[in-house]
């Protein structure tokens, strides 16, 4: 009878596995970051063509312009009146959805233009707050038009065709007419 072979269980030594895993873990902790990409989208106005005839008398009724100016003291002026940033959103909503009721405010949402001028020296935080208030005004109006809550409107996905269609429907009823002006261009108004 042959002597029975001793079964040798050659296992990989796994005592250092924890150390290896720790090293990998620490590498990933150091070299990666949490994707926290949230913020405000904005589209800049088109570049003015120099060949275009410059003096185009646009007949914009004064009531249809909601001029917002922020100066270097971080003061906000809307429709030539000083306002607090907290009140800006409500004022913008009243302006856009006026539909001709108040004679100082817009006569139609499709004509209601908001212009924004930010002076040199303004803090970025103030600008973001003003931008936030004005975007918030539009978001509120669009959300109301679609009959949904603001949170739901903000959560609409750009990759979902239905959601994009809904957004464009709201934008058609209440076009987004927010224009950022260069500080020195504002003198024309």
């Amino acid at each position: 009878m042959k002597p029975r072979k001793k079964r040798v269980q050659e296992e990989v030594n796994s005592s250092s596995m924890a150390d290896i895993a720790f090293l990998l873990l620490i590498f990933f902790l150091v070299s990666t970051e949490m994707p926290n990409e949230k913020g405000l989208n904005f589209t800049l106005p088109k570049k003015q063509d120099k060949n275009e005839v410059e003096v185009v008398e646009t007949k914009i009724n004064k009531r249809n312009v909601f001029g917002v100016i922020v100066n270097s003291n971080n003061d906000v002026l809307a429709k030539e009146e000083p306002v607090k940033i907290e009140d800006l959103r409500a004022k913008a909503i009243a302006f856009i959805t006026n539909e001709g009721k108040d004679e100082n405010l817009s006569d139609d949402p499709s004509k209601a233009i908001i212009t924004l001028r930010i002076d040199r020296g303004t803090k970025y935080q103030t600008y973001i707050e003003v931008q936030d208030a004005l975007l918030g005004a539009y978001n509120k109006i669009w959300a109301d038009y679609l009959g949904m809550s603001e949170q739901r409107f903000l959560a609409l996905d750009d990759k979902n065709h239905e959601h994009v269609a809904m957004k464009s429907r709201a934008r058609k009823a209440f076009p987004f007419l927010l224009s950022k002006m260069e500080p020195n261009d504002f003198g024309n108004y």
Partner: peptide, 19 residues
Amino acid sequence: NDIEKILKDIGFRKIFYKA
């Protein structure tokens, strides 16, 4: 404003302000 002016000049108009 300076940065945005240049971006506008070279045609990049989509801005995302991280907040």
